[in-house]
Amino acid sequence: MSTVKTRGAKGAREPREPKLGVLGGMGPQATQVFYQYVLDRTEASCDQEHLPALILSDTGVPDRTASILTGNTEPMYQRLLADARLLEECGCTVIAIPCNTSHYFVDRIQQEIGIPILHMIRETARTLVAQGKRRPAILATDGTIRTGLYQKECAAFGLEAAPPEPAVQRLVMSIIYEEIKRGERGSLEKFAQIDRALASMGCDCAILGCTELSVFRSYHSLPPFYVDAMEVLAELAVVRCGKQLRTI
């Protein structure tokens, strides 16, 4: 297993076993599904072979989309930064944030802490390139779409990310906010309308770019056309914590 070097009391570098910090609660169901993803994808035959993890489910983080679209972002940023610092102080060696919209702040937070934050959006774009994709559709919150988080990261890898038309985006938001976040399983009828619309966009895949949509996928079988960003994050977390991936 890989180790992380930290400074001891006299400045010497000391090895530290990897520990995953999960900055979650956005929403809590998505955090639970993310950790199940991690467990399912770790090659382990007993408790001790799973990666150590500290899960902070901070359900008090202000709504990400509302914060960004109203411009009132500082309270959310300060809350996320405090959470990231807490995970670092508790001995975590890497942080995963199973919330796409909150990645609006990740690069800024990364400058303030000393352990790496796994960038779910950037790594998803990297994964699509490795798969030979060229034009992904984006299914995400209004906040993620309007800030161009996926568009920018995909463009940096030579991908042309395509958000859905406004009527389709309203269906996506309805599934996220009116169904999954309320503890429901999500409407297959609404998703079928989304699926039909994506078929006419000329995309070679679609990114599930909201972790509530990852929860939807955990309830309903979706074809390989849909690439789950949270699954990308979970697999990266396993590898970065020195564990072997299990094929599922």
Rank of each mutant, 00 (worst) to 15 (best):
L118G: 10
D142G: 01
I109G: 02
T101L: 02
P98V: 04
F105W: 10
G148K: 00
E123W: 09
A140C: 12
D142M: 03
I109A: 07
Q111L: 14
G132R: 10
I109V: 13
I117R: 09
L118W: 08
A137L: 09
P136Y: 03
Q111N: 13
I97C: 06
I117E: 09
T147N: 01
H119D: 15
P116W: 10
V94R: 09
I113W: 02
V129W: 05
I145T: 05
R122D: 15
Q131I: 00
G148A: 05
I95H: 13
V94D: 03
T127M: 12
A137E: 04
Q110A: 14
I109Q: 11
L118A: 12
G114H: 14
I138V: 15
G132A: 09
Q110S: 14
C99L: 11
I121L: 07
Q131N: 13
L139M: 11
G143F: 04
L149E: 02
H103S: 08
Y104P: 07
R108Y: 02
A130F: 00
G132F: 08
A96P: 15
I113A: 00
G143Y: 01
I109R: 04
D107I: 05
N100C: 12
E123T: 00
E112Q: 15
I113L: 09
T144K: 01
A137Y: 01
V129H: 05
I138Y: 05
R122F: 03
A140D: 04
E112I: 04
P116M: 10
E112N: 09
T141C: 07
R108M: 08
R108D: 13
P136T: 06
G114M: 07
Y150N: 03
V129F: 03
A130R: 12
R122M: 09
R134T: 12
A125F: 01
T144L: 01
